[in-house]
Amino acid sequence: MTLPATRAPEISTEDRPPSAVDLAIETVGLTKRFGGRAAVDGLQLEVPRGSVYGFLGPNGSGKTTTIRMLLGLVEPTSGTRSLLGCRVPSESATVLPRVGALVEGPAFHPYLSGRRNLARLDAADLWSDPRTASRRIDAALDRVGLLAAATKHYRAYSLGMRQRLAIAGTVLAHRDLLVLDEPTNGLDPQGTREVRHLVESLAHDGATVFISSHLLSEVEQICTHLGVMSDGRLVAQGPTQELRSRGERTVRVTTPQPTEAAEVLRGLGVSGVEVGAGEVHGTPGATEPEVIVAALVHADVRVRGFAVMTPSLEDLFVDLTGEGFDVSG
């Protein structure tokens, strides 16, 4: 099953045509080939401003290459990308200071302390104010719970502390957009929860958060929008609610008279009716569940149980990516 990538309705309605101003991230036909193989193929990302956008896909599906292209680290083979309405890379110098980025894990100088590593990043930023540097650095460290370890050498940090320091680096200054590549990698459940709270608080401040993950369960609760990558292509995109309701409901009737029950279901236009031992499955489509129950009772079919099942997002993504969230070749 392959569903076409959909556009988020609030940005593609007819009275308000899609324009870069409404989108925090927009890519058109973004493609990157390494050798002959397309790592990213014709990507049309549309990340609305103010959204928390979950960028999902198995490892190796092209998420990090996409993020590197968004940030101007990697030049696409074809296509364009813009952040906050500014073209990358031509307007990178003015837009990237407003973007906090975590790309493919933390990376710092091992023999500098956490605080001095952040000071170095801040020193590199032509937009940051040196007079407030030390206060901003301490505030960022405090925000990720690293203030107590601020003077320790980075090499002495655990994986979780390193990840936190990288997140602190993304909030050193005011950001309108955060691009977080696998921010919960290496964190324990408590750390994962803290990152979730941090993302929520950043979104609450008005920032757009673009967060990639290969684990749906980690981002599902906080994302207003989702995009799903599979093998370099965006196979679904839209508001989380819309995607959630996209999966087709099925009904299950538990009954000692499966043949008769199947008869009734077929009569109501339920498709894909399967008769099993003591139960019947079907896809009701537009037929409401209460109508089915009434019809069964009316036809004197003895019903022991009746269930309407909505597929989880997880099921949907396993369908979309074909292989679940495993490494793709």
């Binding site: 940030l71 101007g72 200071p97 790309v103 933390p106 710092f108 590199a124």
Partner: peptide, 14 residues
């Protein structure tokens, strides 16, 4: 080698 190059470039440092 450390990976700090990508972070310097995304600060951004041209």
């Amino acid at each position: 080698n450390l990976g700090t190059l990508r972070y310097l470039l995304t600060v951004p440092v041209r």
